[in-house]
């Protein structure tokens, strides 16, 4: 692993154990210098660019929360218009709120127009930059500051939006899911996405120690548990068809993933797991079956 020579310079304001910082570093390790990065508003944008400093060793632009894909499409169009496109990769990297919620329309437009760009979602399953509010990527029953558990609530009542399927439905030639806990796999997918012409999409599962409630030394471990329990299936899709999946040996029960995170604490009593855990297990079982993970 390159560290001292990373194009995302250390010294930024990311938390210890930050998943976004890992994703940003892996992204640039995979892409190299010949790229232009567009970030929507979010943790990664804020902590890497406290003016007059910047961690970005590649050209980088942040505009607004909801328009990164539109900005990226303009970057790509301008490079073409000015005859400077060559091999330069245009990549947008944003959080789940910027991707699944507020920026969805701009992403849809950019993918429909067929720009040669890669959109990377770093999904930590809530609005972490503003204090752990629910997004449409928040999983069922997770406790957030706007979907709290209480006497009459078991946390977020809604299912996580299936963003990779939405992107595949746009006719994207390449859609992949990845995890910050599997760096070589993640970088391989980013590289592949960037190399394929047209609008491609990589969705990275990214455990947030402050938002999910686990020790900052456990980011990689928690991410691995999500994959090992089939809570986060890892696959690649080409032209709408699943072409590769990451198989799981000895799939673990979801309890092992849920129990290490404070956001699911309300699902367990001193007498054991509440019935909601069964529903979450069903989701993992569906993933395992649907994607043929075992």
């Amino acid at each position: 692993m390159k560290t001292g020579t990373s194009l995302l310079a250390p010294g930024h304001r990311g938390c210890a154990g930050c998943c976004d910082a890992l994703a940003g570093r892996f992204l640039l390790d995979a892409l190299g210098k010949d790229c232009i990065v567009v970030s929507p508003t979010g943790c990664l944008e804020v902590f890497t660019t406290p003016y007059p400093e910047s961690s970005w060793g590649v050209p980088w632009i942040h505009s607004l929360f909801e328009n990164a894909a539109a900005v990226a499409s303009g970057v790509e169009a301008a490079l073409k218009a000015l005859g400077r496109k060559n091999n330069t990769k245009v990549v947008s990297i944003g959080g789940d709120g910027a991707t699944l919620d507020i920026g969805l329309q701009a992403i849809s437009g950019a993918f429909e127009r067929g720009h040669d760009l890669t959109y990377v979602c770093v999904d930590n399953e809530a609005y972490m930059n503003t204090g752990v509010q629910r997004s449409s990527a928040t999983p069922l029953y997770a406790n957030t500051t706007t979907s709290p558990s209480g006497r009459e609530s078991r946390g977020n009542p809604l299912h996580k939006k299936n963003m990779p399927a939405i992107m595949a439905a746009h006719g994207s030639p390449y859609v992949a899911t990845a995890s910050v806990s599997y760096a070589p796999d993640l970088m391989k997918k980013i590289k592949r996405a960037a190399e394929i012409e047209g609008p491609t999409y990589v969705h990275i599962h990214a455990p947030c120690c402050t938002g999910w409630g686990f020790d900052s030394s456990k980011t990689i471990e928690v991410g691995r548990l999500a994959v090992e329990t089939a809570m986060w299936p890892m696959y690649e899709m080409e032209n709408g068809e699943v072409t590769k999946v990451r198989k799981i040996k000895d799939r673990k029960p979801v309890e092992e993933y849920l129990k290490v995170q404070k956001r699911f604490k309300h699902l367990f009593t001193k007498d054991g797991a509440r019935e909601e855990v069964k529903k979450i297990q069903e989701l993992a079982d569906w993933n395992a079956k649907h994607f043929g993970l075992e």
């Binding site: 909801e66 328009n67 990226a72 303009g74 169009a77 490079l79 701009a106 429909e112």
Partner: peptide, 20 residues
């Protein structure tokens, strides 16, 4: 660029203008 909204129209130009 035939974009999907005025919001993306101006946003795309932000990216394009920054490229020069």
């Amino acid at each position: 660029m035939n974009v999907e909204s005025e919001f993306s129209a101006i946003s795309a130009l932000i990216g394009a203008s920054a490229v020069g």
